[in-house]
């Protein structure tokens, strides 16, 4: 019998719905969410829950791509259309650019994608190289992980490291070992998808520890509360990694609420659901909190005659409680 987790399985006393009153005045930054796979309903719900900015890492689209052109268009869409779409809902969109571990296993394709990367990583709002790292932990995955770490160093960009589902502990250690070998400063590296087994070493070695609150397969947020109680807020951040699987784009605000309910201080909640991610990825020089902390202003660079009241372009809201659609 172990491990004290029975207590947190007792859900009886916990809130079952989001209380928007409690969320008032709270701002959130989700540093890992794949909006390309999400709907407009998600964007609206995220904005309503206080998410003001997010990072969309480039990743695998669910099936392997067969040519470099689709990577090019994918990167362009993260920087163009998805950025615009997010802005329409009042959420500032950043992204990380990289070759994900699964597709690193197609060497011919990986070579072509590597040649594309320098053309994208210097674009505005690219806050890191990511998500990169290990999946099956193959030789090719290691090769392209190392090459992309070099690229990150050259561009002075943070790195967002995906840690594997299988053989996680070893994969996480190896990811950190290699980053250090390649000469990266741990403070520029965000190790993602941590759990109770990996967090201690990640923090002790000076890396950032990100936690993905993702139902069934990764962390639940009751476990997250326990982790924050144990390790505090320093270099810890929470994300949703919401994508095309059963996942929750409100994972960050929900976890914040749960932490508050469980007596964690507002300062700690803010650090792990907002400011730590900004500090870590802000090392790219690409995040200006003035762009979102007082409400996101769509289309700022296009203001006419410096007319700052212009908030146009945001999507009109529909009344979802009505069966009439106008």
């Amino acid at each position: 019998m172990c491990c004290g987790s029975k207590a947190i399985e007792n859900r009886g006393a916990l809130p079952e719905t989001i209380d928007n009153e409690l969320l008032k005045g709270m701002l959130f930054f989700d540093p890992h969410v794949h909006m390309t796979s999400r709907t407009t309903d998600d964007y609206q719900a995220m904005a309503d829950a206080g998410i003001v900015a997010l990072i969309e890492p480039s990743f695998w689209l669910g099936q392997p791509r067969t040519n470099a052109g689709t990577f090019k268009d994918y990167y362009s869409s993260l920087l163009g259309w998805e950025r615009f779409r997010s802005g329409q809902f009042g959420i500032k969109h950043y992204c990380t650019i990289g070759l994900n571990s699964r597709e690193a296993n197609n060497e011919a394709l990986a070579e072509e994608v590597m040649a594309l990367l320098p053309k994208f990583i210097y674009k505005e709002g690219v806050v890191g190289i990511g998500e990169i790292g290990f999946d099956d932990q193959t030789t090719l995955e290691e090769k392209y992980y190392r090459l992309q770490l070099e690229l990150a160093k050259e561009a002075a960009l943070p790195v967002q490291v995906h840690t594997p589902h299988r053989d996680k502990k070893k994969g996480t250690q190896r990811s950190m070992d290699i980053a250090v070998e390649q000469g990266l400063d741990p403070s520029m590296v965000i190790i993602d998808h941590n759990n109770e087994e990996t967090v201690e070493e990640v923090l002790n070695r000076g890396f950032w520890a990100a936690f993905t609150i993702y139902p069934f397969t990764k962390m639940g947020n009751e476990r997250m509360v326990e982790i924050v109680k144990k390790y505090g807020a320093e270099r810890i951040m929470v994300n949703s990694a919401a994508d095309w699987g059963i996942s929750d784009p409100l994972a960050v605000p929900k976890t914040a609420l749960l932490m508050k309910q469980k007596g964690i201080s507002d300062a700690v909640v803010k650090a792990v659901t907002y400011s730590n991610a900004i500090t870590a990825f802000g090392q790219s020089g690409q995040i200006d909190t003035a762009d979102f902390e007082n409400g996101f202003m769509i289309n700022q660079s296009e203001k006419f005659e410096n007319n700052s009241v212009l908030r146009g372009g945001q999507q009109p809201r529909i009344d979802k409680s009505s069966i009439i659609i106008k």
Partner: peptide, 10 residues
Amino acid sequence: FNQADLGELT
């Protein structure tokens, strides 16, 4: 044009 981001396209 072909690989421009939103600001670059503009």
